[in-house]
Write a protein that binds this DNA or RNA. Structure first.
Length: 409
RNA sequence: GCGUCGGUGGCGGAGUGGUCAAUCGCACUUGGCUGUAAACCAAGCGACUUCGGUCUUCGCAGGUUCGAAUCCUGCCCGGCGCA
Protein backbone atom coordinates (compact mmCIF):
# COMPACT_ATOMS: atom_id res chain seq x y z
CA UNK A 1 0.00 0.00 0.00
CA UNK A 2 1.37 3.38 -1.03
CA UNK A 3 1.95 5.75 1.87
CA UNK A 4 0.64 8.75 -0.01
CA UNK A 5 -1.58 9.45 -2.96
CA UNK A 6 -1.17 12.51 -5.12
CA UNK A 7 -3.68 13.66 -7.71
CA UNK A 8 -3.59 16.73 -9.89
CA UNK A 9 -6.85 18.64 -10.19
CA UNK A 10 -5.95 21.40 -12.55
CA UNK A 11 -2.93 22.96 -14.23
CA UNK A 12 -1.90 26.45 -15.20
CA UNK A 13 -2.13 26.57 -19.01
CA UNK A 14 1.30 26.61 -20.72
CA UNK A 15 3.05 26.47 -17.37
CA UNK A 16 4.32 23.83 -14.98
CA UNK A 17 2.02 24.89 -12.13
CA UNK A 18 -0.79 22.73 -10.84
CA UNK A 19 -3.32 22.35 -8.04
CA UNK A 20 -3.65 18.95 -6.46
CA UNK A 21 -4.55 16.81 -3.51
CA UNK A 22 -2.02 14.93 -1.46
CA UNK A 23 -3.44 12.23 0.77
CA UNK A 24 -1.31 11.11 3.70
CA UNK A 25 -1.99 8.60 6.48
CA UNK A 26 -2.90 11.46 8.79
CA UNK A 27 -4.88 13.72 6.54
CA UNK A 28 -5.15 15.56 3.27
CA UNK A 29 -2.95 18.38 2.04
CA UNK A 30 -4.39 20.65 -0.62
CA UNK A 31 -1.58 21.67 -2.92
CA UNK A 32 0.09 23.96 -3.55
CA UNK A 33 0.46 24.32 0.20
CA UNK A 34 2.69 26.04 2.67
CA UNK A 35 4.05 23.75 5.35
CA UNK A 36 4.57 25.34 8.73
CA UNK A 37 7.98 24.73 10.22
CA UNK A 38 8.12 23.16 13.66
CA UNK A 39 11.78 22.23 13.92
CA UNK A 40 11.83 20.92 17.47
CA UNK A 41 8.33 19.47 17.40
CA UNK A 42 6.86 22.89 18.03
CA UNK A 43 5.98 25.74 15.76
CA UNK A 44 7.72 28.32 17.91
CA UNK A 45 5.38 30.41 20.05
CA UNK A 46 2.24 28.55 18.91
CA UNK A 47 0.04 25.86 20.41
CA UNK A 48 -1.23 23.19 18.03
CA UNK A 49 -4.65 24.85 18.25
CA UNK A 50 -3.12 28.10 17.09
CA UNK A 51 -1.29 26.31 14.29
CA UNK A 52 -4.62 24.94 13.12
CA UNK A 53 -6.13 28.37 13.32
CA UNK A 54 -3.57 29.68 10.82
CA UNK A 55 -4.93 27.23 8.27
CA UNK A 56 -1.84 25.02 8.32
CA UNK A 57 -2.45 21.50 7.09
CA UNK A 58 0.97 20.04 7.81
CA UNK A 59 3.96 20.59 10.11
CA UNK A 60 7.60 19.93 9.29
CA UNK A 61 10.02 19.00 12.07
CA UNK A 62 13.74 18.38 11.99
CA UNK A 63 15.61 15.11 12.28
CA UNK A 64 18.84 16.53 13.62
CA UNK A 65 17.26 18.69 16.30
CA UNK A 66 14.92 15.99 17.58
CA UNK A 67 17.69 13.42 17.54
CA UNK A 68 19.69 15.67 19.87
CA UNK A 69 16.74 16.48 22.08
CA UNK A 70 14.63 14.83 23.31
CA UNK A 71 16.01 11.93 21.22
CA UNK A 72 14.19 10.07 18.46
CA UNK A 73 13.85 6.92 20.58
CA UNK A 74 11.99 8.90 23.18
CA UNK A 75 9.67 10.42 20.58
CA UNK A 76 9.01 6.92 19.31
CA UNK A 77 8.04 5.82 22.81
CA UNK A 78 5.38 8.48 22.84
CA UNK A 79 3.90 7.19 19.62
CA UNK A 80 5.78 9.38 17.19
CA UNK A 81 6.08 13.02 16.39
CA UNK A 82 2.43 13.63 15.72
CA UNK A 83 1.24 12.25 19.05
CA UNK A 84 4.19 13.63 20.95
CA UNK A 85 3.52 17.21 19.94
CA UNK A 86 -0.24 16.79 19.96
CA UNK A 87 -0.70 17.78 16.35
CA UNK A 88 -3.64 16.14 14.68
CA UNK A 89 -2.64 16.55 11.02
CA UNK A 90 0.05 15.30 8.68
CA UNK A 91 3.70 15.72 9.55
CA UNK A 92 7.02 15.77 7.73
CA UNK A 93 10.62 15.62 8.88
CA UNK A 94 13.59 17.15 7.18
CA UNK A 95 16.60 14.86 7.03
CA UNK A 96 19.22 17.05 8.66
CA UNK A 97 20.76 17.79 5.28
CA UNK A 98 20.22 21.49 5.71
CA UNK A 99 22.30 21.42 8.88
CA UNK A 100 25.21 20.24 6.74
CA UNK A 101 25.01 23.73 5.33
CA UNK A 102 23.83 25.86 8.23
CA UNK A 103 26.22 24.28 10.74
CA UNK A 104 28.91 23.68 8.13
CA UNK A 105 29.74 26.04 5.30
CA UNK A 106 27.47 28.78 6.62
CA UNK A 107 28.50 28.45 10.25
CA UNK A 108 29.55 31.77 11.73
CA UNK A 109 29.28 33.50 8.38
CA UNK A 110 26.94 35.99 6.87
CA UNK A 111 25.71 33.35 4.53
CA UNK A 112 22.07 32.43 4.31
CA UNK A 113 19.76 30.19 2.38
CA UNK A 114 19.05 32.83 -0.24
CA UNK A 115 21.87 35.19 -1.01
CA UNK A 116 21.83 38.26 -3.13
CA UNK A 117 24.61 38.53 -5.68
CA UNK A 118 24.99 42.28 -5.82
CA UNK A 119 28.62 41.54 -5.15
CA UNK A 120 29.74 38.86 -7.63
CA UNK A 121 32.84 38.12 -5.57
CA UNK A 122 30.50 36.56 -3.04
CA UNK A 123 30.09 33.66 -5.39
CA UNK A 124 33.78 33.02 -5.89
CA UNK A 125 34.87 29.94 -4.06
CA UNK A 126 36.41 30.58 -0.70
CA UNK A 127 36.98 26.92 -0.08
CA UNK A 128 40.75 27.07 -0.15
CA UNK A 129 40.87 30.11 2.10
CA UNK A 130 38.78 29.07 5.03
CA UNK A 131 40.09 25.72 6.09
CA UNK A 132 40.58 26.89 9.67
CA UNK A 133 37.13 28.42 10.02
CA UNK A 134 35.34 26.52 12.76
CA UNK A 135 32.33 24.50 11.69
CA UNK A 136 29.90 22.37 13.61
CA UNK A 137 29.43 20.04 10.66
CA UNK A 138 32.13 18.26 8.70
CA UNK A 139 31.53 16.04 5.71
CA UNK A 140 33.13 12.65 5.89
CA UNK A 141 33.36 9.76 3.47
CA UNK A 142 30.13 8.18 4.54
CA UNK A 143 28.14 10.90 6.24
CA UNK A 144 28.50 14.03 8.26
CA UNK A 145 29.96 14.57 11.70
CA UNK A 146 28.16 17.14 13.76
CA UNK A 147 29.37 18.90 16.86
CA UNK A 148 26.22 19.44 18.88
CA UNK A 149 25.38 23.12 19.21
CA UNK A 150 23.78 22.26 22.55
CA UNK A 151 26.54 20.50 24.46
CA UNK A 152 29.43 20.14 22.06
CA UNK A 153 29.16 16.35 21.83
CA UNK A 154 30.12 14.68 18.58
CA UNK A 155 27.60 12.84 16.37
CA UNK A 156 27.94 11.09 13.07
CA UNK A 157 24.93 11.06 10.76
CA UNK A 158 24.87 8.82 7.73
CA UNK A 159 22.00 8.46 5.29
CA UNK A 160 21.04 5.24 7.07
CA UNK A 161 21.16 6.96 10.46
CA UNK A 162 19.01 9.83 9.22
CA UNK A 163 16.42 7.41 7.87
CA UNK A 164 16.47 5.43 11.08
CA UNK A 165 15.86 8.55 13.12
CA UNK A 166 13.08 9.58 10.77
CA UNK A 167 11.44 6.20 11.11
CA UNK A 168 11.54 6.60 14.86
CA UNK A 169 10.03 10.06 14.59
CA UNK A 170 7.36 8.60 12.36
CA UNK A 171 6.33 11.53 10.17
CA UNK A 172 4.11 10.91 7.16
CA UNK A 173 6.66 12.31 4.76
CA UNK A 174 10.39 12.08 5.32
CA UNK A 175 13.39 13.25 3.30
CA UNK A 176 16.55 11.63 2.01
CA UNK A 177 19.77 12.78 3.63
CA UNK A 178 21.45 15.30 1.36
CA UNK A 179 24.11 17.94 1.32
CA UNK A 180 22.86 21.46 0.91
CA UNK A 181 25.85 23.23 -0.60
CA UNK A 182 26.88 26.84 -0.34
CA UNK A 183 26.45 28.98 -3.46
CA UNK A 184 30.01 30.17 -2.88
CA UNK A 185 31.37 26.78 -3.86
CA UNK A 186 32.77 26.33 -7.35
CA UNK A 187 31.56 23.98 -10.04
CA UNK A 188 34.02 21.29 -9.16
CA UNK A 189 32.86 21.16 -5.59
CA UNK A 190 29.18 21.36 -6.54
CA UNK A 191 29.65 18.36 -8.79
CA UNK A 192 31.51 16.40 -6.14
CA UNK A 193 28.81 17.25 -3.57
CA UNK A 194 26.04 16.35 -6.00
CA UNK A 195 27.50 12.91 -6.56
CA UNK A 196 27.69 12.43 -2.85
CA UNK A 197 24.05 13.54 -2.46
CA UNK A 198 23.07 11.07 -5.18
CA UNK A 199 24.86 8.22 -3.46
CA UNK A 200 23.22 9.21 -0.22
CA UNK A 201 19.83 9.35 -1.93
CA UNK A 202 20.17 5.77 -3.07
CA UNK A 203 21.30 4.66 0.34
CA UNK A 204 18.46 6.56 2.00
CA UNK A 205 15.96 4.89 -0.31
CA UNK A 206 17.37 1.43 0.18
CA UNK A 207 17.42 1.77 3.93
CA UNK A 208 13.92 3.19 3.96
CA UNK A 209 12.62 0.28 1.91
CA UNK A 210 14.34 -2.16 4.19
CA UNK A 211 12.90 -0.60 7.33
CA UNK A 212 9.45 -0.19 5.82
CA UNK A 213 9.28 -3.85 4.85
CA UNK A 214 9.36 -4.77 8.54
CA UNK A 215 6.95 -2.13 9.76
CA UNK A 216 3.27 -1.29 9.70
CA UNK A 217 4.12 2.36 9.71
CA UNK A 218 3.38 4.11 6.42
CA UNK A 219 5.90 6.76 5.51
CA UNK A 220 6.60 8.42 2.20
CA UNK A 221 10.18 9.22 1.28
CA UNK A 222 11.11 12.24 -0.83
CA UNK A 223 14.43 12.39 -2.67
CA UNK A 224 16.22 15.71 -2.86
CA UNK A 225 17.50 17.36 -6.00
CA UNK A 226 20.60 19.52 -5.64
CA UNK A 227 23.11 20.94 -8.11
CA UNK A 228 23.57 24.54 -7.07
CA UNK A 229 23.22 27.15 -9.78
CA UNK A 230 24.58 24.96 -12.57
CA UNK A 231 22.11 24.01 -15.27
CA UNK A 232 23.91 20.81 -16.16
CA UNK A 233 24.11 19.68 -12.53
CA UNK A 234 20.53 20.58 -11.71
CA UNK A 235 19.27 18.68 -14.72
CA UNK A 236 21.51 15.73 -14.06
CA UNK A 237 20.21 15.66 -10.51
CA UNK A 238 16.56 15.87 -11.55
CA UNK A 239 17.12 12.99 -14.01
CA UNK A 240 18.84 10.84 -11.46
CA UNK A 241 16.69 11.52 -8.41
CA UNK A 242 13.56 11.50 -10.56
CA UNK A 243 14.41 8.04 -11.86
CA UNK A 244 14.53 6.50 -8.40
CA UNK A 245 11.51 5.10 -6.64
CA UNK A 246 10.80 8.04 -4.37
CA UNK A 247 7.26 9.05 -3.41
CA UNK A 248 8.00 12.69 -4.11
CA UNK A 249 10.82 15.15 -4.36
CA UNK A 250 12.47 17.98 -2.57
CA UNK A 251 14.30 20.73 -4.36
CA UNK A 252 17.15 21.88 -2.22
CA UNK A 253 20.06 24.24 -2.23
CA UNK A 254 21.16 27.60 -1.08
CA UNK A 255 20.44 29.96 -3.91
CA UNK A 256 21.44 33.26 -5.23
CA UNK A 257 18.03 34.88 -5.52
CA UNK A 258 18.53 35.43 -9.23
CA UNK A 259 19.13 31.72 -9.85
CA UNK A 260 16.18 30.30 -8.02
CA UNK A 261 13.60 30.47 -10.77
CA UNK A 262 15.77 28.95 -13.46
CA UNK A 263 16.82 26.15 -11.12
CA UNK A 264 13.22 25.32 -10.23
CA UNK A 265 12.20 25.37 -13.87
CA UNK A 266 15.05 23.12 -15.02
CA UNK A 267 14.22 20.62 -12.34
CA UNK A 268 10.45 20.53 -12.61
CA UNK A 269 10.53 20.09 -16.37
CA UNK A 270 12.27 16.81 -15.72
CA UNK A 271 10.81 15.40 -12.49
CA UNK A 272 7.94 12.93 -12.98
CA UNK A 273 4.77 14.96 -13.18
CA UNK A 274 2.62 12.69 -11.07
CA UNK A 275 4.63 13.00 -7.88
CA UNK A 276 4.62 15.95 -5.48
CA UNK A 277 7.52 18.41 -5.37
CA UNK A 278 8.59 20.36 -2.34
CA UNK A 279 10.73 23.49 -2.67
CA UNK A 280 12.70 23.35 0.52
CA UNK A 281 13.03 26.39 2.70
CA UNK A 282 11.42 28.94 0.44
CA UNK A 283 8.58 31.16 1.45
CA UNK A 284 8.68 34.87 0.62
CA UNK A 285 5.55 35.88 -1.32
CA UNK A 286 7.39 36.61 -4.60
CA UNK A 287 9.17 33.28 -4.37
CA UNK A 288 5.95 31.42 -3.66
CA UNK A 289 4.37 32.78 -6.84
CA UNK A 290 7.48 31.79 -8.74
CA UNK A 291 7.41 28.30 -7.27
CA UNK A 292 3.72 27.66 -7.80
CA UNK A 293 3.91 28.90 -11.36
CA UNK A 294 6.80 26.54 -12.00
CA UNK A 295 5.26 23.39 -10.64
CA UNK A 296 6.06 23.36 -6.94
CA UNK A 297 3.42 21.70 -4.76
CA UNK A 298 4.83 22.21 -1.27
CA UNK A 299 6.84 24.91 0.44
CA UNK A 300 8.17 25.32 3.90
CA UNK A 301 9.96 28.27 5.35
CA UNK A 302 10.92 29.70 8.71
CA UNK A 303 10.32 33.25 7.48
CA UNK A 304 6.76 33.70 8.75
CA UNK A 305 7.51 32.46 12.25
CA UNK A 306 10.99 33.90 12.53
CA UNK A 307 9.90 37.26 11.20
CA UNK A 308 6.81 37.06 13.34
CA UNK A 309 8.86 36.76 16.49
CA UNK A 310 10.96 39.75 15.52
CA UNK A 311 8.14 42.08 14.58
CA UNK A 312 8.47 41.98 10.80
CA UNK A 313 4.94 41.31 9.68
CA UNK A 314 3.43 40.66 6.27
CA UNK A 315 0.69 42.89 5.00
CA UNK A 316 -1.08 43.11 1.67
CA UNK A 317 1.00 46.23 1.07
CA UNK A 318 4.34 44.73 1.90
CA UNK A 319 6.26 43.83 5.00
CA UNK A 320 6.37 46.25 7.88
CA UNK A 321 8.28 46.23 11.10
CA UNK A 322 5.70 47.07 13.74
CA UNK A 323 8.42 47.85 16.26
CA UNK A 324 9.21 51.02 14.35
CA UNK A 325 8.43 54.35 15.96
CA UNK A 326 5.80 55.22 13.38
CA UNK A 327 3.49 52.46 14.71
CA UNK A 328 3.66 53.44 18.36
CA UNK A 329 0.34 55.22 18.22
CA UNK A 330 -1.15 53.57 15.16
CA UNK A 331 -4.64 52.51 16.19
CA UNK A 332 -5.35 50.67 12.95
CA UNK A 333 -5.31 46.91 12.42
CA UNK A 334 -2.14 45.27 11.18
CA UNK A 335 -3.60 44.51 7.78
CA UNK A 336 -7.22 45.48 7.18
CA UNK A 337 -7.42 42.96 4.35
CA UNK A 338 -6.27 40.03 6.45
CA UNK A 339 -8.76 37.59 7.94
CA UNK A 340 -6.58 36.23 10.72
CA UNK A 341 -7.55 36.50 14.35
CA UNK A 342 -5.00 39.22 14.97
CA UNK A 343 -6.27 41.47 12.21
CA UNK A 344 -9.92 40.67 11.98
CA UNK A 345 -12.58 41.47 14.56
CA UNK A 346 -14.76 38.71 13.27
CA UNK A 347 -12.92 36.17 15.38
CA UNK A 348 -14.53 36.92 18.70
CA UNK A 349 -14.18 40.67 18.50
CA UNK A 350 -10.42 40.64 18.95
CA UNK A 351 -8.73 43.31 16.96
CA UNK A 352 -5.20 44.14 17.92
CA UNK A 353 -3.93 47.57 16.96
CA UNK A 354 -0.53 48.13 15.46
CA UNK A 355 0.24 50.24 18.51
CA UNK A 356 -0.49 47.31 20.81
CA UNK A 357 1.66 44.94 18.77
CA UNK A 358 4.40 47.56 18.71
CA UNK A 359 4.20 47.77 22.47
CA UNK A 360 4.37 44.01 22.93
CA UNK A 361 7.57 43.71 20.90
CA UNK A 362 9.20 46.68 22.60
CA UNK A 363 8.29 45.33 26.01
CA UNK A 364 9.64 41.91 24.97
CA UNK A 365 6.32 40.36 25.87
CA UNK A 366 6.02 36.88 24.42
CA UNK A 367 2.48 37.48 23.24
CA UNK A 368 4.05 39.66 20.54
CA UNK A 369 5.85 36.68 19.07
CA UNK A 370 2.70 34.60 19.28
CA UNK A 371 0.41 37.11 17.61
CA UNK A 372 3.04 37.93 15.00
CA UNK A 373 3.50 34.25 14.21
CA UNK A 374 -0.24 33.62 13.97
CA UNK A 375 -0.64 36.51 11.60
CA UNK A 376 2.40 35.80 9.43
CA UNK A 377 1.64 32.10 9.13
CA UNK A 378 -1.97 32.81 8.30
CA UNK A 379 -0.91 35.40 5.76
CA UNK A 380 1.52 33.10 3.94
CA UNK A 381 -0.59 29.94 4.18
CA UNK A 382 -3.61 31.85 3.00
CA UNK A 383 -1.66 33.40 0.16
CA UNK A 384 -0.73 29.95 -1.15
CA UNK A 385 -4.32 28.81 -0.69
CA UNK A 386 -5.45 31.75 -2.80
CA UNK A 387 -2.94 30.75 -5.46
CA UNK A 388 -4.44 27.27 -5.42
CA UNK A 389 -7.92 28.69 -5.80
CA UNK A 390 -6.71 30.94 -8.60
CA UNK A 391 -5.35 27.90 -10.45
CA UNK A 392 -8.71 26.17 -10.04
CA UNK A 393 -10.47 29.32 -11.22
CA UNK A 394 -8.09 29.69 -14.12
CA UNK A 395 -6.95 33.17 -13.17
CA UNK A 396 -3.56 32.59 -11.60
CA UNK A 397 -1.81 35.21 -13.72
CA UNK A 398 -4.32 37.90 -12.83
CA UNK A 399 -4.18 37.05 -9.15
CA UNK A 400 -0.40 37.14 -9.16
CA UNK A 401 -0.29 40.48 -10.90
CA UNK A 402 -2.89 42.01 -8.64
CA UNK A 403 -1.28 40.77 -5.45
CA UNK A 404 2.28 41.68 -6.29
CA UNK A 405 1.38 45.11 -7.56
CA UNK A 406 -0.11 46.00 -4.21
CA UNK A 407 2.43 44.09 -2.17
CA UNK A 408 5.33 45.91 -3.79
CA UNK A 409 3.52 49.22 -3.15
C1' G B 1 24.99 73.27 61.91
C1' C B 2 29.18 69.66 62.01
C1' G B 3 31.15 65.29 59.79
C1' U B 4 31.24 62.10 55.73
C1' C B 5 30.41 60.03 50.89
C1' G B 6 28.97 61.51 46.27
C1' G B 7 27.31 64.63 41.69
C1' U B 8 29.79 61.58 34.35
C1' G B 9 26.13 61.52 27.92
C1' G B 10 17.99 59.83 28.01
C1' C B 11 18.63 56.26 32.52
C1' G B 12 21.92 53.00 35.42
C1' G B 13 26.89 52.91 36.01
C1' A B 14 32.77 52.63 34.63
C1' G B 15 36.85 55.88 34.45
C1' U B 16 40.10 58.95 39.13
C1' G B 17 46.36 63.61 35.66
C1' G B 18 47.77 62.47 29.07
C1' U B 19 46.27 56.63 24.87
C1' C B 20 38.67 60.12 26.83
C1' A B 21 33.77 62.45 22.85
C1' A B 22 34.60 59.13 27.52
C1' U B 23 34.32 50.99 28.76
C1' C B 24 29.62 48.57 29.56
C1' G B 25 24.29 47.61 30.15
C1' C B 26 19.45 49.51 29.23
C1' A B 27 16.52 52.77 26.47
C1' C B 28 16.25 54.97 21.69
C1' U B 29 16.73 54.92 15.88
C1' U B 30 17.13 51.98 11.66
C1' G B 31 18.39 47.57 9.10
C1' G B 32 18.42 42.30 8.45
C1' C B 33 16.25 37.41 8.82
C1' U B 34 14.01 32.15 3.03
C1' G B 35 14.61 22.93 4.59
C1' U B 36 15.40 27.62 12.69
C1' A B 37 22.69 27.59 16.67
C1' A B 38 17.23 32.65 15.99
C1' A B 39 11.30 35.36 21.81
C1' C B 40 17.31 36.62 17.42
C1' C B 41 21.31 39.39 15.06
C1' A B 42 23.71 43.91 13.16
C1' A B 43 24.71 49.12 12.72
C1' G B 44 24.03 53.94 14.72
C1' C B 45 23.36 56.79 19.14
C1' G B 46 27.17 65.26 21.62
C1' A B 47 27.38 68.90 17.30
C1' C B 48 29.31 70.07 12.61
C1' U B 49 32.26 67.75 8.62
C1' U B 50 35.19 68.54 1.77
C1' C B 51 35.00 62.07 6.43
C1' G B 52 41.09 63.90 7.22
C1' G B 53 39.25 66.14 11.04
C1' U B 54 37.08 70.55 13.79
C1' C B 55 34.33 72.27 17.94
C1' U B 56 31.56 71.92 22.74
C1' U B 57 31.03 68.28 26.88
C1' C B 58 31.88 64.75 32.87
C1' G B 59 27.05 69.90 38.97
C1' C B 60 28.75 75.60 38.72
C1' A B 61 32.88 79.16 39.04
C1' G B 62 37.87 79.85 39.56
C1' G B 63 42.88 77.77 40.04
C1' U B 64 47.44 74.31 39.56
C1' U B 65 49.71 71.93 35.18
C1' C B 66 52.70 71.61 28.78
C1' G B 67 47.99 68.78 29.59
C1' A B 68 42.16 68.02 34.07
C1' A B 69 36.10 64.05 33.94
C1' U B 70 40.42 62.94 37.03
C1' C B 71 44.41 67.49 41.59
C1' C B 72 43.27 72.27 44.68
C1' U B 73 39.71 76.29 46.45
C1' G B 74 34.85 78.25 46.87
C1' C B 75 29.76 77.69 45.85
C1' C B 76 25.25 74.76 44.62
C1' C B 77 22.72 70.00 45.01
C1' G B 78 21.90 64.84 46.99
C1' G B 79 22.66 60.36 50.40
C1' C B 80 24.12 58.86 55.19
C1' G B 81 25.70 59.78 60.39
C1' C B 82 25.79 63.06 64.65
C1' A B 83 23.54 67.24 66.88
Amino acid sequence: MAPIKFSIEKEIPEKLGRAGILETPHGVIHTPAFVSVGTKATVKALTPEQIKETGAEVVLANTYHLYLEPGDERVKKFGGLQKFMNWSGPTMTDSGGFQVFSLGAAYGKELSKVVSITDPSALISERSLDSETPRLAKIGADGVSFRSHIDGSLHYITPEKSIEIQHNLGADIIFAFDECTSPTEDYRYQEEALERTHRWAKRSLEHHQKLSANSFQLQALFGIVQGGREESLRKRSAEFIGSLDFDGFGIGGSFAKEDMETAVKWVNEILPKGKPRHLLGIGEPEDLFMGVENGVDLFDCVAPTRNGRGGTLYTSRGKINVRNAEYREDTGPLDPECGCSVCSPRHGGANYSRAYLCHLYRAHEMLGGTLGSIHNLYFIINLVKKMRQAILNGNFEEFKKEFLEKYRN
